[in-house]
């Protein structure tokens, strides 16, 4: 129920902005807005589900992991 509500609200917010942008014939801006809306709906739905998802911070561990290991080996 919560997920459906989140998707509906997200879609309503996105469509509101998209309608204004299409009316002004700003197609490029509408694409950016649509993509952000989709990302927002996906993230908000995942949060609304309450299930465990991989944290975005995990990317930091991948990117800076080797450097962190080097620092630990050098300075303890």
């Amino acid at each position: 129920m919560l997920i459906v509500l989140t998707v509906l609200l997200g879609a309503a917010a996105g469509l509101r902005e998209l309608e204004l942008l299409f009316r002004k014939r700003r197609i490029g801006e509408a694409i950016v807005c649509g993509a952000l809306s989709l990302a927002g709906i996906a993230c908000a739905s995942a949060a609304a589900s309450g299930k465990a998802f991989p944290s975005p911070l995990h990317v930091l561990m991948v990117v800076y992991g080797p450097f962190n290991r080097l620092m630990v080996s050098l300075f303890g």
Binding site: E17, L20, G40
Partner: peptide, 16 residues
């Protein structure tokens, strides 16, 4: 135009 759609992204990411 990005503020409202972005709010959902902020909410979702803050939780996840």
């Amino acid at each position: 135009p990005l503020i409202l759609p972005g709010a959902f992204l902020l909410f979702g990411l803050s939780y996840l």
